[in-house]
Amino acid sequence: MAGNGERLLQAVADALKVDVASVDKNSSQDTLEGWDSLGMINLVAELERVFEVQFDILEISDFRNISIIKSILAEKGIRFD
């Protein structure tokens, strides 16, 4: 079973339709192609599916980079070791 860190990168890659190798913990809206408004909708859906969580609208509007997403997920009890 992959760790949550890897699952996060994979989910981002799947949602934005990019190679997982091009995603890392420093990736953001500015570095990843596909992280546009439609990509964002995919991203929310995929993260909610993979981590079985529900984001509220304020959290969604904060999704600018991987580290913010990580901290929001961490607040929901997802552990990144």
Binding site: M40, F55, I57, I60
Partner: peptide, 13 residues
């Protein structure tokens, strides 16, 4: 409703 208001995508995933 979130995605409806955020991106006018009403059908829930």
């Amino acid at each position: 409703l979130r995605m409806d208001l955020y991106a006018r995508q009403p059908i829930a995933n």
